[in-house]
Amino acid sequence: MTRSLPHQWLIEQQRLGHTLCLVLDSEHEHPTRQALLKSSRPDQYLSVYGQTQVADLADAGPFVFSFDRPGDEHINELLNRPDNHWGWLASLPKGGLPTLVKHWRERLIIGERPHQALYRFHDNRVLARALKHLPVEAYPAYLGPAISVCYWQGTCWASTYNPAPGEYPLPDSPLWLQVPVTPQQAKQTRFLNARRFLLAEHVQAFASLAEQQNPDAWLRVTLDQAEVWHWQAPEQLEFLLTQHLQAPAQALAPYWQVRSAESPDEHFERVRLMAAFWQGDMPP
């Protein structure tokens, strides 16, 4: 496929009478989002996180825009830099923007409390990987009202048609959540979920940390430590984050270090008990 595929796709979808749509990663494309907000009518955009339980993250969450011109300058600027992973394009029935946003809001939160996470549907890498692994008959429940999608899949542009666009309930066991992810995607997902956890549960402490150092850099270093120790379970990550957040500028106490022949679970349980003892949460 050539680099002109998205332009051809946009022209063809409009010729067929469909609404053109951009799913934008607002967090990393803030200037583009602001420019689109200024040039769009109120009925041409929606925040996906708005009116959901993560509405406090709406400013950093994905926005969906409909637009009228295949040659829109803001869209062209995005198409010229696909490796920035800004999101993807979709075509919809006329007036289908609210339905598409409703569709993804219903698929946004994955997992059970207290170990819920956000599904990064707006990441073109997530979309491309799901469509690569899903059987065609699973496309409708995944893509919902989208008639067709166009996205960068790492080395080239691709487009995929939905065989039965429409509104579908969330399956009990969504196949797209069983798609294997790359180590890089898993690491980025852990980072985003960890930051969401800190903003939701420890916002004041996280804000204080930001006054002293770069909070994202601190978070990445802390998660790298968790990876070295093979602490990847939600309760292990939450424990490390909350404990380290109490004194983020200080090194962890010596008893945190792994001992010879100690398994990750044994290491975690020992450190958890030691931390509780030194903090007076349990008797000696």
Rank of each mutant, 00 (worst) to 15 (best):
H7A: 09
S47Q: 08
L46T: 05
L241R: 03
L237P: 00
A60W: 05
L252H: 04
D43Y: 05
T182L: 13
D83V: 08
T182Y: 10
A58S: 15
S263I: 09
L24K: 00
G61N: 12
D224V: 07
M274P: 00
Q246D: 08
K132H: 13
A60L: 13
R272V: 01
L10E: 04
P140Q: 08
P283E: 14
L79C: 01
L273H: 11
A200I: 13
A217R: 10
H202R: 15
P254V: 13
N162E: 06
R107K: 09
T52G: 07
C156T: 15
P215G: 05
F197C: 06
Y139A: 03
G96M: 01
V181E: 10
W104F: 15
F268G: 03
P82D: 06
W88R: 03
K187F: 07
R113H: 13
T189K: 09
W86K: 02
A117C: 08
A226F: 00
H230I: 05
W86V: 03
R190L: 07
Q250W: 13
K38I: 03
Q246E: 10
Q188K: 02
L237H: 04
T2Y: 02
L177A: 06
A253W: 07
Q243W: 03
R33S: 07
E137D: 14
G280I: 08
H230W: 08
L245E: 00
L175D: 12
P135S: 05
L170H: 05
L199C: 11
E238A: 06
E266F: 10
T182K: 14
A217G: 03
W231R: 02
R259W: 11
T32K: 01
T189D: 12
S40K: 12
Q204L: 13
H267W: 06
P171T: 03
E262V: 00
H30W: 12
P284I: 12
F191L: 09
S91D: 03
R15C: 08
Q14W: 01
A186I: 07
D123F: 04
G71V: 09
N76S: 14
Q185W: 09
F239Y: 00
R129E: 07
Y49I: 07
E106G: 06
D216Q: 14
S91A: 15
Q184W: 11
A194P: 02
